[in-house]
Design a binder for these strands. Structure first.
Length: 193
DNA sequence: CGTAAGATGAAG
DNA sequence: TTCATCTTACGG
């Protein structure tokens, strides 16, 4: 039972990296204290994929996706939500893994305050909710290296293959048939089952 | 410049 | 099902 080596995962193409990031921890250091969550749902995006922000090439917003794995890609959408991605793969190739949902581990009170609600189950079960719980209210972290930013990624106990479900991605209109959403079977913090 | 659409969430 | 809300990207 060895813990997954995050550094190796970050070099993989997004479709391979996305399921392997399940079970890893996202840790954010805030003025109010430390927040730690366990990733339970991810989605893969890459430049050959019409649903990906990187599909139309590198732009100021998507530039981080084209860097080498190990950076953050944070974007704003629908006029009100932020979403957190882990950039993976090689420099020059635009891909990333969207962290769609996680399970609160540490700093739960801080997350409740950030979200303005108390219900545990609604704290981090969606990309917008997760970003809000982590206290992300802008795109300043986008492009930063995980090793140097206030957010870091820690390996967790490996998840067995038969606990990982792959399914179509959510909220997109292109390439809806591709099963590039991954989540931990039965986990109650997955955004949609 | 003007504008349409969007990797969502909450309420009705 | 609808709507809130505004950045980004692209066309003129």
């Amino acid at each position: 039972m060895s813990y997954s080596v995050v550094g190796e995962i970050l070099r993989l193409p997004s479709v391979q990296a996305a399921p392997k990031l399940l079970g890893s921890y996202l840790v954010r250091q805030t003025p109010a204290g430390r927040i730690k969550v366990r990733i339970v749902e991810t989605e893969a995006y890459h430049q050959e994929d019409p649903a990906s922000h990187s599909f139309r090439g590198r732009t100021p917003r998507t530039a981080p996706m084209f860097e080498a794995g190990g950076r953050l890609y944070v974007y704003f959408t629908y006029g009100m939500h932020y979403a957190v991605n882990v950039v993976v793969g090689q420099k020059g190739i635009g891909e990333a893994v969207l962290v769609r949902a996680a399970e609160p581990v540490e700093g739960i009170e801080i997350m409740r305050q950030n979200r303005g609600i108390t219900d545990m189950n609604s704290l981090t079960n969606g990309p917008g909710k997760l970003a809000q719980a982590l206290g992300i209210r802008d795109t300043k972290l986008s492009g930063e290296r995980l090793s140097k930013s206030s957010i870091s990624l820690q390996g967790g106990p490996p998840i067995s293959q038969n606990e990982i479900v792959s399914a179509p991605r959510i909220g997109i209109k292109q390439a809806v048939d591709l099963p590039w959403r991954f989540y931990i079977k039965g986990n109650s913090f997955v955004s949609k089952l």
